[in-house]
Design a protein around this nucleic acid. Structure first.
Length: 162
DNA sequence: AGTTCGGACCGTT
DNA sequence: AACGGTCCGAACT
């Protein structure tokens, strides 16, 4: 697992790559901005890092990334992985409710469990859990802090009400 | 319009 | 057994 800081106009994110791809993306945190960076990044990881940097910049600008790095979702349960895949199908500028995502993964009564799975999303921003709102267009919650959810939605042209 | 309350539902720890 | 990034209806203000 290789941790790499990714500086952006919104702060320095931290990406974690496994042998399979991008496994984790952390929002900028005030403390310990400088993490241990591998002395040398494996050749296979370098293009993933470039793709991650570009995709991150795109989404932070409210646009759709041209290409994503391979995503390693193996840490999640079957249900969580199903939710995380479903989230990737929500285009920028669009939103879904937790109930709609539940229906999309074939568990129409699991709206709350979808909320849990969103909170466990290891790759926020790139896996757009911020596009999932509560019923009636209300904002709902967000593990990374509601400010992030609002700004990301706003940049994508949405006007969150709650 | 807005809010609070209660119950039902599901996956995870 | 308990907890959530929920949802819906009902009963309030």
């Amino acid at each position: 697992m290789h941790q790499v800081p990714i500086p952006t106009s919104d702060g320095t994110f931290v990406a974690t790559f496994s042998e399979a791809g991008l496994a984790r993306l952390e929002f900028p945190s005030d403390r310990k901005a400088a993490r241990r960076q591998s002395p040398r990044l494996p050749e296979a990881v370098r293009p993933w890092l470039r793709a991650t940097e570009r995709a991150l910049d795109r989404v932070l600008a409210g646009k759709t990334p041209t290409q994503l790095p391979p995503l390693d979702l193996s840490a999640g349960t079957n249900f969580q992985q199903a939710v995380w895949v479903a989230l990737q199908h929500i285009p920028a500028g669009a939103t879904r409710s937790y109930l709609e995502v539940a229906r999309a993964v074939g568990a129409p009564k699991a709206a709350r469990a979808v909320g849990q799975a969103c909170g466990a999303n290891p790759i926020p921003v790139l896996i757009p859990c911020h596009r999932v709102l509560a019923a009636g267009g209300r904002l709902g919650g967000f593990s990374g802090g509601l400010e992030w959810k609002r700004t990301l939605l706003r940049r994508e042209g949405n006007v969150p009400s709650g």
